[in-house]
Write a protein that binds this DNA or RNA. Sequence first.
DNA 1: TGTACATCAGTGAACGCGCGTTCACTGATGTAC
DNA 2: TGTACATCAGTGAACGCGCGTTCACTGATGTAC
Lengths: 212, 212
Amino acid sequence: MTERPESRSRAERKERTRQRLLDVTLHLVTERSLASISLREVARDAGIVPTAFYRHFASMDALGVELVDESMRPLRQMIRDARRGRVTHSDIIAETVEILAKQVREHPDQFSFLTRERFGGVAAVRRAIATELRLFTSDLTVDLARLTAGYDWTTDDLEMAADLMVTAMLNTVMDLLETDGRHPEDAAAILELSERQLRLIALGMGAWRSKP
Amino acid sequence: MTERPESRSRAERKERTRQRLLDVTLHLVTERSLASISLREVARDAGIVPTAFYRHFASMDALGVELVDESMRPLRQMIRDARRGRVTHSDIIAETVEILAKQVREHPDQFSFLTRERFGGVAAVRRAIATELRLFTSDLTVDLARLTAGYDWTTDDLEMAADLMVTAMLNTVMDLLETDGRHPEDAAAILELSERQLRLIALGMGAWRSKP
DNA sequence: TGTACATCAGTGAACGCGCGTTCACTGATGTAC
DNA sequence: TGTACATCAGTGAACGCGCGTTCACTGATGTAC
């Protein structure tokens, strides 16, 4: 009845090793860039011999691209939370920043990886992140369209505003990650700053329609 | 009368080699991150033997910190241009974006280095860039204070707005660098986007004072 | 259920390579007299 | 101006190390009969 981990199927064991490789790399990448992490180092930390790495990934770059997918999960979860949140909270901006803070707190390694490698050395990884962020901006544009229904905003203008908001939020994420979690009062100040910035953008949007 | 380069003084020759090391690294860093560039590679490209590198810098990290100083020069020039520009141009935002585009066009390697290593692997370099950017935001805050004289903006709020503008402009820089200069029409679209975003922020600032 | 064979995740030795750093050196430039 | 010595940017051999990748392998798990 009670199976010991060793008795799992070969496929399960392989999947576990693969996941360990991803986890270990994500952990290493919080302190140094992906480009400076070696295949041997990752294999060592995952408890396998370097050559066994190739049973799972063709190269560290390939692993990096997989890691983008995995790291985007909390971001996608964030969008889902945000859309649900809007039903329960009267202040959309405060709610959004709260959700952002929660996701960063719960998945610091993933956000660290994404913001760090966004302009890092590996082209394939950079491209994968850019694509995912564009999808994120897209979703936000749709939400903004819903909120500004009735006003004479063009899709292009909404996209522009969404892009600015995503930029501001990514900057918030990077600031949050730099506080290291050792100074909670710093984190609170950053979140307050972020909230004010988003509010400033929202005010700008309110004034926008009266302009040509 | 006409001295050949070989006849320069020892101090001059040393300075030239040092500059060559910095130039060569800046060029290499546009394609890969600083952390993945080797001392030997830099020495090779600069035309000296690896051991001679130590006559100029204690390590690649030390060279990186020097490079921050050097790369910040176009940014400082930008501020000077922007302040002068305000006398000659009626539209501050259009002028600012023009100046930004000009500086990025003229010094792509420096901007590439700064935006890339801003969250890169070398802690000392990251810190040096953060410090310089904070000074940049400071200067912008002073300018905003001048522009909003008479309104009831607090310094804290001005700093918040300046921070958002700097964030937006850094994002513009990164987008510009990604177009590679091969598609001038892309660059024009990015600059138009940037201008609209800054205008949105300015509108927000106009509406801000009527809020608590 | 038992047997014979196939699969394949992980092993371990070996390779050639570029790395950072040490060291004693060379020879042109600079300085003191 | 000429000579004797000091300085020091750059040289070249050497080192030990970790790297990515190859290869033939092992032995537990899976499959066919």
